[in-house]
Amino acid sequence: MSHPVWDELLGQPEAIEQLQRAIGTKQAGLQHAWLFTGPAGSGRSNLARSFAAAIECELDGCGSCQQCRLAMADAHPDVTILKTDRVVINIDEVRSVVSRASLATSVGKYRIIIIEDADRMGERTSNVLLKVLEEPEANTIWILCAPSVSDLLPTIRSRTRNLNLRLPSVAEVTALIMQRDGVEESLARRAALQAQNHVGMARRLATSSEARARRQETLRVALSVGNLSQAMLAAEKLLGVAKRDAEAVAQERDDKERLALMRAYGLEESEKVPPNLRVQFKELEENQKRRQTRALRDGIDRIFTDLESLHRDIMAIQLGGEQELVNQEFQQGIIERAQGTKAKDTIEILDAITKSRARLASNVRDLLVLESLCVQMIFREKIAS
């Protein structure tokens, strides 16, 4: 039997197979705690939603019943998702979802609680969760998502079943975009390369001319940094790019989520929301507003990804590699940088991008993070010296 709730996932056949086997035995009881790990773009949260939908579905994930539609639209009454736009998950947030674990279910057999970015829990907060994992409620399933198992306390890890995800290949991302969005192969492949295999980013680049234009602006700004004043100006420009990108992504995602919720309740897009469903739609709007800070951080992270691809192109030339440049439209500027600096300089910039991600995650002001990075990118033709 096919399981359409898994159709949106890419490059994770081993993980999906394990989850399907687990779903097949759910009548006898499921493992009460799961840990989905993998790099950004591997689909941890999407896999958690699909798993939740398959658990609640009487047909193990048909994708078309109301149970599946509600779960995939983040609106199932028995599925709670803890998201945060903060650097650290608040202890009260975890206490709140722990209290929900003991509630009776509304329409299904299982109560499911998903914690995205579980690595953002501090030790005290983790210990609140640990207590309920040690003495789990009957028919309650916990799904934690994090970059790696080392990001959680050993005591938490030992009480979960881990599934490790991988980034899909360029070929897999390309094929998905061609199939799902009807994009021609050359554009789909270029988007997959530029997004560094991140499916969500690749789809936006392949389907949005505005997203492609913002990316090109990012690289033009990066290649223009030649002195300190230009570095300060570049940081402001990049922050502006990130803000515009975040607004566009948020609007697109908000519209998509509202439409999914409408369809989950059998409503047409143009229909007025009936009074008995207004609470659910109000909750969606409030969650979307709370994500605004996170949206900007994600926009800056996309800039970091673009800068990484640019400097990997530079390094490829410096090391004499013959692989295709990801950013061919900037070939001349890339060659000039490669010839005017050394590989160790490029490595330092790539390290600075990694440090910038960490600083941003530590709540350092956005502009300060970008200013520091742009100073590191000043082009001074170091070969001659």
Rank of each mutant, 00 (worst) to 15 (best):
N139D: 13
A352V: 09
D301S: 13
A33Y: 04
Q194G: 10
L144C: 06
T105D: 01
R253F: 10
G108E: 00
L187Q: 13
A75F: 03
N197A: 14
Q20W: 09
E324Y: 07
L325G: 12
S106I: 09
L193N: 00
R69T: 07
D92Y: 04
I113F: 11
S229H: 10
V98W: 11
T140F: 09
L307Q: 13
D298Q: 13
R159S: 05
M1F: 03
R124L: 10
R190P: 01
Q179G: 12
T207H: 07
P275D: 09
S186W: 03
E123R: 15
L70K: 13
V94R: 12
A202C: 02
A53M: 11
I300W: 04
C62A: 09
P13E: 08
L368M: 06
D119A: 12
L205C: 12
M377S: 06
T207R: 09
V369C: 03
A138D: 14
R44F: 08
N90R: 11
K256P: 02
E271T: 07
A213P: 08
G24R: 10
M178A: 09
P168G: 00
K289A: 15
V369P: 04
A53D: 06
R263G: 08
H3A: 04
Q376S: 12
L130C: 06
Q331V: 01
W34K: 11
A22C: 00
G340L: 09
I303V: 15
C57Y: 03
I353N: 12
V87F: 04
V225Q: 11
E247M: 03
T346L: 00
L238N: 05
V273Q: 10
C68F: 03
L261Q: 15
H32C: 02
D255W: 11
S356W: 00
N139P: 00
L19Q: 06
R290G: 01
L325A: 09
R124K: 05
D60G: 02
N287C: 06
T80N: 15
R189P: 08
G108A: 15
L130V: 08
R21Q: 15
N46M: 15
N276P: 07
T140Q: 02
P4G: 02
A211E: 13
A175P: 09
S208P: 03
M1N: 06
I91S: 08
R124V: 13
D78W: 00
E336W: 00
A316Q: 10
M1C: 03
R49L: 15
G226A: 13
K131Y: 12
E210K: 04
A352R: 15
A260V: 07
V249L: 12
M121Y: 10
V183W: 05
N227R: 11
S64T: 07
I16S: 10
S102M: 05
H3N: 06
A235T: 04
L35N: 00
D181R: 14
E14L: 14
